[in-house]
Design a protein around this nucleic acid. Structure first.
Lengths: 233, 233
DNA sequence: CCGGCGGGTGATTCGCCAGTCAACCAGCGG
DNA sequence: CCGCTGGTTGACTGGCGAATCACCCGCCGG
């Protein structure tokens, strides 16, 4: 009986509704109690399904986490790649990447929380090398910086990898501030502002003088939000 | 050496030799296998003591982790505070903070690894709010930036808290690169370079033009020796 | 010499939770 | 109407590991 109607088999295409429900529930519970702090029973209850069903769709707890990771991360990387490979100046692309990250957070804060808090730094355990994944993202955008450096847009003393790492460091820390509650996540104003500040200070920090001058002139064009924040100086 | 009675009682002063051995072992094992991946038995074996003795010195596994955290983090914060409250320009202090972090890594990479990978972002679980601790550090140095902004050294549109968060984000990401193996930790040259790049790109990113100009002139005075920043006490 | 005390030991206990499995139920084709 | 198939259920179990506890031993004071 070489049968393999395993729902997991055709990944991505049309997984059952149930599977997605469980995945969703897993994200929520992980976000609330952490991977180690949550029981499969919790996930099942959250999803409103029987305990055993979780194991019908996922081999084990690790695979569940792994799937959460793959889903979220691959979506992110895909969008980042689109930005990296698209048209635009370095500055525009950097802004683009920051946008992607913050948009992801706006759309689904809990998923981002899980990615940041649970997965990004997590020691040995399951098979997935999240470190590899993380490193891949850094490498992906580091190409951007090598090119820019050759063009003389980047401070020559900067290492491309490090620059890339710093960008993600900034983004991650900015998001962490929200995740952790340092900043108010429900305030869209705050999000916009943080986004702009992260991109700007990173660009100022990394570009050569000539390029940096242009940064100052940049204004957020699409004011989906209200006018720029009145900053008291 | 003098002998002391309740080991746990007088915290910090002179805890028994044994207690410290166990703590040390815990750090090593946590660094190797992660908090959740390690058994108390592993810690005991690593320390070369009996299983039960661990419970003689620590109430439970959580308290063990908590102690690791407190020890490492408070040391770090103390040094950071010294820098913050010491003499010097903003740029010098920023460099000082970066120094403190990297020096800590140089001295005890494994402890730093545990702090970064296991504790810094870790969800609900034990009592300690590491998040609070983290936030405290950010607040601590954010004062630096408020002052700097009033003096006009800082780009006026920057939020002091965010700037501070970004600094730690940069540092953390830089260290993570080593912890994770992206960069070669055994190369002291690489460490020095990363340090300089982090400090510089952050400063460029955050300072006003006038101040930033001075950054370019800065040179690491000694490659082998540490900077003038108050190093270990 | 005795007894008590505090550091030190490690087999035992005990609760928890991932993962299993037999039974259940809807639909459907014959 | 029957029986098969595949999604669905939840009681159950097996192992694992945190925490306990009864015991050990060297020292000190009386």
């Amino acid at each position: 009986m070489g049968q393999q109607n395993k729902p997991a088999a055709d990944s991505g295409s049309r997984e059952s509704e149930r599977r997605r429900t469980i995945l969703r529930a897993a994200i929520d519970v992980f976000a609330r109690k952490g991977y180690h702090g949550c029981r499969i029973a919790d996930v099942a209850k959250e999803a409103g399904v029987a305990y055993g069903l979780v194991y019908h769709y996922f081999k084990n707890k690790d695979e569940l986490l792994e799937t959460v990771f793959d889903t979220g991360w691959s979506g992110f990387v895909t969008r980042v790649r689109a930005v990296v490979e698209g048209e635009g100046t370095l500055a525009e692309k950097v802004r683009g990447i920051v946008d992607v990250a913050f948009e992801a957070y706006r759309v689904d804060p809990r998923a981002v929380k899980v990615l940041i808090l649970e997965i990004a730094r997590s020691p040995a355990g399951s098979r997935i090398n999240r470190q590899t994944a993380f490193v891949d993202a850094i490498r992906l955008s580091s190409g951007l910086f090598s090119v820019a450096r050759e063009r003389g847009e980047l401070r020559p003393e900067l290492d491309a990898h490090l620059a890339s790492a710093l960008l993600f460091g900034n983004i991650e820390m900015g998001l962490t501030a929200f995740v952790v509650g340092l900043a108010d996540a429900r305030d869209p104003e705050a999000l916009e502002q943080a986004k702009a500040q992260i991109a700007n200070s990173f660009l100022y920090g990394v570009l050569t003088g000539a390029q940096a001058a242009e940064v100052s002139e940049w204004k957020p064009e699409k004011s989906a939000t209200k006018s720029k924040a009145p900053k008291r100086s």
